[in-house]
Amino acid sequence: MAYPLVRNRRLRSSTALRNLVRETTIGVNDFIAPIFVTEGVGVKDEITSMPGVYHWSLDTMEQELREIVDLGIQAVLLFGVPDHKDATGTSAYEDNGIVQKAIRKIKSIYPDLVVIADTCLCQFTDHGHCGVVHTTECGAQIDNDESLVLLTKAAVSQAKAGADIIAPSNMMDGFVAAIRQGLDEAGFTNIPIMSYSVKFSSAYYGPFREAAHSSPKFGDRRTYQMDSANAREALREAQADVEEGADFLMVKPGLAYLDIIRMLRDRYTLPIVSYNVSAEYSMVKAAAMQGWIDERAIVLETLLGMKRAGADLIITYHAKDAARWLQEN
């Protein structure tokens, strides 16, 4: 059947009618708010390349947490910026590391807030890579299996501190299996793993590396993060994590990889997470500050697009703004 019998505009004639037939919705329960915590006292330092996003010290972060909770956001993704770095990222798995202290602090103030701990070594190593580096005749190499030992230690220490979810972002082979085994052996069989299953080597991470102080001191991360051109490989990565016991599958970045989100959604029943990453945030902020775009409309359309592609949850630096805008709606 075709026009004039079929008139698709019939279902668009009023706001109420459009609301009735809307296929995809976004709400505050879809959002996870990242937070950067650092050592020191009285710290509230805006990240230059991410307007509106701050480094917080343990004594000031309650201001940010209160705002997040008051807006109805139920989960935060925690990143730590330590004051000590070394070759093996020791402060990533110390019981008194910045992430561990922040987890305990957050849970003491807001015990019902879901704390997701990013589990990686790059913020904590003096070389900025996500694993253990060995120098050979062929140059610097990331030792996959040796790195898994330290990543597992970090995950267990985060769980001991009170993390609700472990989110390993390192892209080492076998990281979900290693961390799952480590958590189970330590008695944390109830702690889920939100795996950065499909993490591309992306130009969209630039502002985050300023925020996390995690830029590699040499080379790049292309030997462990994925080639942006590969979709079938993304399915292999996701399948491996499913078989190893992941509880969530994440695609990072989100905006340039909506096709990957849809592919995972069509194949797996696990919750799918989209990471609306730092440059996606910063580009919108920069254009909005110039008056070139309607920030609210752009952000909500982008987040809706991620949900439409198949994401159940969205990690986004726009979380607080989006929550406010949805309340106003």
Rank of each mutant, 00 (worst) to 15 (best):
D247R: 10
I293F: 00
T38I: 12
L326V: 03
L300H: 03
D70I: 02
A256L: 14
S157Q: 14
T316R: 12
I116N: 07
A309V: 11
A288Y: 01
N276D: 15
Y196H: 06
E233W: 07
V21E: 03
G40H: 14
L151K: 07
L77V: 15
F36S: 02
A256R: 03
I32E: 03
A319M: 10
K107T: 02
T125E: 05
I179S: 08
L303K: 13
I314V: 15
A212R: 00
R209N: 09
T316Y: 12
I165T: 02
A102S: 15
F248P: 03
M194I: 11
R232V: 06
A240C: 07
M50E: 07
E280R: 00
S278V: 01
F208L: 12
R18T: 07
E237R: 10
A323Y: 05
K252Y: 08
V251L: 09
L264Y: 00
R232G: 03
V132W: 02
Y3W: 10
W292D: 03
D83V: 11
N329A: 14
R221D: 11
N96R: 15
Y205A: 13
R10G: 01
L65V: 06
K285M: 14
P34Q: 14
V156R: 01
Y110Q: 00
K307N: 04
E94T: 09
D247I: 09
R308D: 06
E301N: 09
Y224T: 09
R7W: 00
I193Y: 01
F31S: 08
